[in-house]
Structures are given as C-alpha cells and as structure tokens.
C-alpha cells in the first residue's frame, strides 16, 4: 500500500480513538474549569463505566443503548459521591493536598474494582457483528463508526446543555467566578455536583465504547486513557470545552501516526511528549486563554 493510503487509514483509526479521548477529556476539562482540580480518578470512573455496562448487558440482559444509559447514570452517581466525600471537604486546602487526595481516590477505585470484579480481564459482549465498511481505498469498521457516532452525539448534547440550558449557564458562571456566582444566588455546590455527574457519565460512555472496540475490560484500563485524555484536555486548553474535543482528536491521530511510523510501544510516550511540548510552548493550550496572576 502507498504510504498516503496507510496514513489515511490511520487518520480514520485515530479519529475513532480520538473521539474516545475527547469524551474523557471533556470530564477533565469541565471539572478543572469549575474547581481547578485535576480529577485523577476520572480515568477510573471510565473504567467503572465499562464494568457497569458489562454487567448491565450480561446480568440485566439489557440491549446496548439502555445498558449505556444505566451505566452512565451509575457512573454519575459515583462521580458525585466521590466529589462529596473526597474533594468537597478540601475545597479550601492547598492544591497539593487536593491532588494527593485525587491520586488516592484513583488508587482506591482501581483496587476496589480489582477486588470486586477480579484482577483478570473480561471479554466485553459484542452488541453487533464485526463489519468492514469500505470507503474507497480505506475502510472503517462498524465499531469505529459506532464509537464516532455515539461520541459526536454525546458532544452535541453536551454542547446544547452548556450553551442553552439554565444549568449550562450556571456552570459557565461558576467557572468564570465562583464568588460572584454565589452572590448571584447560584447554588455552587449543586453546579459542581452536576459537573461531576455529566463528566462521569461521558466517561462511562467512553468506557463502554472502548470495551466494545478492544473487546476486553480490566480494572487498570482507566489509567493510561485517563492520563492521555488529560493530556488531550491540556493540549486543547484546559477548562475550554471545544478544546477538549480538539485535543482528544489530535491525540488520537498523533498516536496512530506514531504507531504507523515506528514501534507501537512508543505510543504511550507520544502523549507525554506532546504534553511537555505544549506546556513549554503554549501552556494555555491551543484554544486556552491566558490566565493572570494578581500580586
């Protein structure tokens, strides 16, 4: 095959993977935008979402779409509880204390999952037969199409919520100025909870999609995609919702390109190399605004 066809094929693969990163990155970015916290446990919520989906399909015998909704709801509850129990009491503590708590929460979710669901991987039930869709010289699998479609649909829904609903307006207000929002009579605690709920639900959806894509789930599956999605959020400009989408897609494509060019073990280094370059040369990300620090 000519190299440009390979590149095109990897672009398609990258967009599918990237849309998953984008879904996870949205949660990071929304939470960061509102309480300036890197929710380290976000990747683990994505993992839990995959497990919830798994059990909804295998035990509750639900079809894919209802299973996804159940899993998203359950993950939202976990996200809200996490915020209430672990993060809320620390709202006025040092950033380092909060960050350590987030790392602790991540480890806790991981090891609890390992204990409850078992350490070994589970094959994810397939909701549809595998098919290739030929697009000229390149192809797309129906799973990739599903991932991409569901991701886009969820992003559109999120966009509508953030831009056009009362909740969305309140979220934007809180992220701009928490004190002012409080004075305007916005229930900041509720908005923060809602943000965690929405972010967690998106991550859960991503978990199910990836479970289907790779056909397996395990308790540690959240670690790497979680970190990479965080990098995607930083790349796009953390706190900026469209930035997360852009960052996620770029990350997915970059990763697949590197796999084409060289060894697949280098793939995990790509994300971090991107991160360090971005932080050095464009610390506010591609779409981020410059922050000011008052003396």
């Amino acid at each position: 095959m000519a190299w440009h066809i390979i590149a095109l094929q990897q672009l398609i693969n990258g967009l599918a993977l990237g849309s998953v990163y984008a879904l996870i990155a949205l949660g990071y970015t929304m939470v960061y935008g509102i309480i300036r916290l890197i929710n380290f446990a976000h990747g683990d919520i994505y993992m839990l979402g995959a497990y919830f989906g798994f059990y909804a399909i295998t035990m509750l015998k639900l079809p894919l779409v209802p299973a996804m909704i159940v899993s998203m709801a359950a993950a939202a509850v976990v996200g809200v509880l996490l915020e209430r129990i672990a993060y809320k009491p620390l709202r006025n503590s040092s950033r380092i204390a909060v960050l350590i708590t987030a790392i602790g929460a991540s480890l806790l979710l991981q090891s609890t999952a390992q204990l409850v669901f078992g350490a070994s991987f589970k094959p994810f039930p397939q909701a549809m037969a595998f098919r290739r869709i030929q697009l000229g010289p390149v192809f797309m699998t129906n799973r990739q199409l599903l991932i991409f479609g569901v991701a886009v649909l969820l992003m559109v829904i999120l966009h509508v919520i953030v831009q056009y609903t009362k909740l969305g307006k309140a979220m934007r207000a809180v992220s701009m100025d928490k004190e002012a929002a409080l004075l305007m009579g916005i229930n900041v605690d509720r908005i923060i909870s809602a943000t965690f709920a929405i972010g967690s639900a998106l991550a859960a959806a991503a978990g199910i999609l990836v479970g289907m894509y790779y056909n397996r789930i395990d308790p540690y599956m959240g670690m790497m995609p979680g970190l990479k999605a965080f990098v995607a959020a930083v790349l796009g400009g953390i706190g900026v919702v469209p930035g997360a989408v852009l960052g996620g897609l770029l990350m997915g494509v970059a990763e697949n390109m590197v796999v084409t060019l060289g060894s697949s073990t280098l793939r995990d280094a790509v994300a971090f190399a991107i991160l360090i370059v971005v932080l050095l040369f464009r610390p506010n990300g591609l779409l981020g605004k410059k922050g000011i620090e008052k003396v």
Binding site: I96, L227, V234, T265, A269, F272, I276, L279, P283
Partner: peptide, 23 residues
C-alpha cells in the same frame, strides 16, 4: 521546565517524564 509550570501541571509533566523514561 518546572520553572514555567506550577502545581498540578508540573505534577502531570513529571509523571509524563517518568513514563517517557520507561518507554
């Protein structure tokens, strides 16, 4: 790079550095 990064950004960058070394 730590000169330009603060708090949580630095944390993630150092984490990334460690992983790059491993890879």
């Amino acid at each position: 790079p730590a000169l330009r990064l603060r708090g949580d950004y630095l944390a993630i960058a150092t984490l990334g550095f460690g992983e790059i070394i491993r890879v």
